[in-house]
Structures are given as structure tokens and as C-alpha cells.
Design a protein around this nucleic acid. Structure first.
Lengths: 247, 247
DNA sequence: ATAAATATTGCAATAAAACGCATACATCAA
DNA sequence: TTGATGTATGCGTTTTATTGCAATATTTAT
């Protein structure tokens, strides 16, 4: 049997059972333990599996559907709490995705009345679980990086929606270039989100301020609120306060 | 059992009960107390739990979205593995939601080629995380009970889709009444799912056979495959084999 | 204070991994 | 064809990791 055949079988076994024992593979493939180990070593080198004592695990073993690790969680929680104050009963809310938005989703009031539109399945599930608010998930192709729905269908659905307030996460924000992104589809979605809401609130940890990516979503003056972990009076925010309300 | 499996189970127990007793883990995992302690020590070293005298505690009580507990998981895994055999490269798959579907999502091959439509954000996230297949999530109002997208927008989007194979979970199935449900919106979605696919596969644990709810989705003869945890030759399935292919 | 439960430590048995080496096999060039 | 080169595989040995056990210490509860 060829190496590649074995590799394929091993990967099949792993996707099926989420793990394999070296000994079982030995019998299944009719090769020595050494060969199995060498195969596993190579598959691990290629990042396909996780080798452990006694066998190997699927890469997804530890994430049955675990949420993305949240970097700078303390700051993001703080931002989410500030953002929550903009939300009132009866409003229709529209949100993008990202870890900050997840923090906001986690503190949505259980008795909120209104409509909650989002392009992020993670946010939608969080909110639906916690709150009786009406959650509408906008459909589309699920982007494997950001786990938000993208594509023409999202944009077309957004064109039918008129929300009171839109919350956006941030990858980069600067006075000169405004809100920027690196992924084309994300840009299209964010542009549509902005168009579909009366007011736009951008949530950003302070370290993203004055950074840039290549693709522009909008200029600063398209944003109504800027919510950061800094004090609203912080001097880093001074220049932004010309066009946005700082929170 | 691999070390990592034990760690995973321990973490599951802790998120479920907020604490564990070393003795309970002993019995649950079939290992000595020493091993349990060493496991707990390691998990604590990794910052995952807090070890205390007699067991361990969850590190944080602020928990993210919780995956629905899966009842009869062993049977559902078995069904999912059978269902997987119906999936081939190039197909467009359409699925509903539910815990069986989640089990199927967990074993989707990483290199599957095709399109995966679903109305369940949970299934969509699982599949997108595990596989490079193109995942399309159909939009709508997120039903707070079943966590699937429902409503007119789903039905309207489904009318534009023509899939090769549709997988449906089951709440009740009987010869007389066919596939039945108790929630009106779910019925509408399932009806549309069936219409949008060339073939329909129903996945059901055997105890749901010959049970009924009040709202009919379709008759038995609308179903092409019936996948259960029973052996295809089981006598309980005999009567179904007239109209469906039993797997 | 005392008994019971739980932890810690060192140790031995076992299982698995890593390493070096010899053999088999394929590929390629002369 | 032949020989050289490189790769894949299996085997024996050494090294390391895991696990359970027993003796001892510590904590907890009464």
C-alpha cells in the first residue's frame, strides 16, 4: 500500500472518530508501528492532525464548536458594556461579527424588545439563547475565516432592511483612511450594513486606532459613534471627536 | 482511552456542573485516582480549571453559548456515519437542524467538494470549521427552541435552490401519518427543504419510529432513504422498506 | 482531637516513542 | 542492463511517558 493511501485512510478514520490509536492503525493498514508513527508525524507536520501519546486527534478535537479565543477580552467587555447603553427597547439593531460583537451578544438583556439582525451565526445564537428578542440571521456563504455570512445574498437582503442602529467591529481605523479591511467580501458586507442603518456605531479596541488595511469600508464621517476602551476624553480620541460621538 | 480524551471529558463535566469530584471522575473514566489528579493538575497548569481539595472547579462561570446536550449520542453517531456514505464529492447537500444533524456535521470530510446548504447555524458553523466545503446558511428568524432559521425568507430562498440530497432529522415518524412535527414554522421549513432536493434522507433514532405529532410534513412515500440506528433488516423497519430505502 | 478523606511522593511495571541501522524497493543515468 | 542514489519500511535497542500502587503527609469534618 502506498504512503498516500495510508495517509488518506488515516485522515478518514480521524474525521470519522475524531481520534485514532496507533495500534489500531497498525492492524488496519498492515504495517509496523514505526510506519504508522512516521505517517502520523508527517500528517502532523502538514498540520492535518494532532499527534498525542498513543495515537492522534483531529485538529478540531478540542473545538466541538468552541468559539474563537478572545484576545484582549477585558477591553472588549468594557466596550460591549458601553455599547449596550445605546440599545433601547423597540429598536431594530443590525450587527456585524467578530469577537467584540460576541461580547455584546453575551450581555444582551433577556427581556429586550425589538429586532436583532446580524450576519454572524455566532452572535445570532448567543443572542437567541439569552434573550427573547427577535433574532434574524442574514443568509449567505459562511466565510471560513470570520464566520460571518457574506456574498450577494447578504447584500441583497440588507437592501430590504432599515435598522435604527448598526454595530460594527473594527480591524483597522484611522483618520486618514477611515474604516478599512483586508477581506473584499467583508468590505462589501460592512458597506451594506452601514447603508441599511440610520446610525452607525463602531466598536474598536484602542490599539486598532490609527492602523490601516488596504480596502476602505467608509470614511470617518460616515460613523456616528466610536466606542473604545479608552476614556471618551482621552487625547488619542480628540481628533475623532470632530465627526463622531465618542463613547 | 487517550489522555486528551480524558481531559476533554473532564472539561465537559466541569462546564456542565461547574465542578467535579475526583472520585466521580475515577468511576467515569475508569482510571485510578492518581491519574485523575495528574489530569487535573495538568488542566490547572494550562489554566483551564481550578483544582481544589477533592476535585476541581470551573475557571469562569461566565460561559459562552452552550451546545445542546445530545441525548442518545451513541445511536446518533451511528446514524451519522451511515448517512455520510450517501455524500459524495460534487453533490449539493441540503440539511435541516437538530442534534443528529450536528453529529453528521462533526464528521463531514475536510476535503469534501460541493455545496452545503443548511438552515441551522450550529450545523453551518461545525461544517465550516471542519471542512473546506462551501457552506451556505439560509437566512431567517432564528427559532429559539430548535435554533434553526425559519420564516418566509427561508422558504423563499429554498425555492431558488435545487440540491441533490436533503437530510432531515426527525421528531416523529410513522407509517400512517408520515413525518410529523409539533411546530408550525418547522413544518413549513421542512416542507420546503423536501421540495428543494432531488432525494430526501430522513435520520431517526429508532425510538421515534411509530410516534406522531399533530402537524404533517409529508407522507412516507415522499422519503427516499430512512437511516436509523437499527440494522436495515430489522423487523421494525420491514413495513417502511416498501417505500424507502432502509440504511 | 481524632478519624476519614484527600494529596503527595517515590517507585516499579508497562506502553509508547525515538533512534540507529539494515534491508528492500524504486528511480534515474550511464 | 547495471550501478548509484534516494526513499520506504521493519527490527532491535534505548529513552521517555504513562499509569497504578503503597507509604506517608496533609487537609477536612465531626
Amino acid at each position: 500500500m502506498l504512503q498516500e493511501e495510508r495517509h488518506k485512510i488515516i485522515l478518514q478514520q480521524i474525521t470519522l472518530h475524531h481520534k485514532v490509536l496507533s495500534n489500531d492503525l497498525c492492524l488496519l493498514l498492515n504495517v509496523s508501528l514505526d510506519t504508522v508513527r512516521r505517517d502520523l508525524a508527517e500528517l502532523e507536520k502538514d498540520g492535518k492532525i494532532i499527534k498525542v501519546h498513543g495515537g492522534a486527534l483531529a485538529k478540531t478535537f478540542h473545538q466541538p464548536f468552541q468559539q474563537p479565543a478572545i484576545y484582549a477580552q477585558a477591553e472588549k467587555k468594557k466596550i460591549a458594556e458601553k455599547a449596550l447603553k445605546l440599545i433601547h427597547d423597540g429598536m431594530s439593531i443590525l450587527t456585524g461579527g467578530g469577537t467584540i460583537m460576541l461580547e455584546l451578544a453575551k450581555i444582551i438583556p433577556p427581556d429586550l424588545i425589538g429586532t436583532f439582525f446580524t450576519v454572524s451565526p455566532l452572535v445570532a445564537l448567543e443572542v437567541a439563547q439569552r434573550s427573547s428578542v427577535n433574532v434574524i440571521l442574514l443568509a449567505g456563504q459562511l466565510s471560513p475565516n470570520s464566520y460571518i455570512c457574506t456574498g450577494a445574498s447578504v447584500v441583497s437582503q440588507l437592501s430590504e432592511i432599515h435598522a435604527d442602529l448598526c454595530f460594527l467591529g473594527t480591524n483597522a481605523l484611522s483618520l486618514g483612511d477611515g474604516l478599512t479591511e483586508y477581506d473584499w467580501e467583508t468590505v462589501q458586507v460592512k458597506k451594506s450594513l452601514i447603508k441599511s442603518a440610520k446610525k452607525v456605531a463602531v466598536m474598536s479596541i484602542s490599539e486598532k486606532l490609527e492602523t490601516n488595511h488596504k480596502l476602505q469600508v467608509c470614511k470617518i464621517n460616515a460613523l456616528d459613534y466610536l466606542i473604545t476602551d479608552l476614556d471618551p476624553g482621552d487625547k488619542k480620541l480628540l481628533t475623532y471627536s470632530q465627526t463622531c460621538k465618542i463613547i
